[in-house]
Amino acid sequence: MKERNKTLDAGLRGLDCVGKLLLILIMAFPFFWMISTAFKTLAETLAFPPTMLPESLQWVNFTDVFKTISVGVYLRNSIIVCVFVVILQYFIIVPAAYSLSKYEFRAKPAFFALVMLGQMIPMQITFLPVYFMFSKMGMMDTYSALILPFISNPFGIFLLRQYFMQVPGEVIEAARLDNASDIKIMFKIMMPMAKSALITLGLLSFISNWNNYFWPLIMTSQEARRTLPIGIALLKDADNLQRWNLIMAGNLLLVLPMLGLYIVASKKIRNAFVYSGIK
């Protein structure tokens, strides 16, 4: 009887293992296929039966991508937008969260409601009015149009407020008695206490801005201000021949930074998303 249980157990274990390997295959294989295709010749992508690995690595695909679309410009714009959003948002959300957690004023509930509203309303609803506003002000195709709407990150204010509320009032009182200014208190006391939240927010907004397609699609029409996701979508459309090896090579340029970041800090990134999901 015990013997049989053991074999049953081993069998179940094996089945469990096979199932999980299959799951890994389903999630990882498309990425492998993207990388493999990116290094193939056009003939190889059309070959039947398909080959798993390219016969020789076609680095020329990447130079062809640079010839077809202005990767350099897109890449520069993507980096500028991401860096500015990540840095500037702290200047907005840290004081706001500090005010919400440590100050008393009559409009505070209204301010808090405003933050909640900002968190609730997606940009897919507000984009048309913002587009009208920016085009009236001549701000289309500017970095400001790509950066400003993202720096008052309401979720960031909400999360930081929770952290700041845990800082005991006595600590702040003591600092005030030492004649520390509010700016000093924010930098020297509040921000170190919320370090993990600040890193989380930076990571999340970097990832979402790097991947953002919708907003730059609406706000830009000139090459000079387009970001990489737009570039890759254009590459797909620009290529009537459907040279999938080229398209996948371009795609890889957009994917690799995120994949690299994920390989380096996979646990940290997942924790950041759990944070943001549960609140």
């Binding site: 498309p30 990425f31 296929w33 993207m34 990832i207 790097w210 991947n211 397609y213 996701p229 890759i232 979508a233 797909k236 398209i247 996948m248 795609n251 957009l254 994917v255 995120m258 994949l259 970041l261 994920y262 990134i269 998303f273």
Partner: peptide
């Protein structure tokens, strides 16, 4: 989840 929807869609 952390890859752009543009990449995933083209893929």
């Amino acid at each position: 989840h952390i890859i752009s929807m543009v990449s995933v869609s083209t893929l």
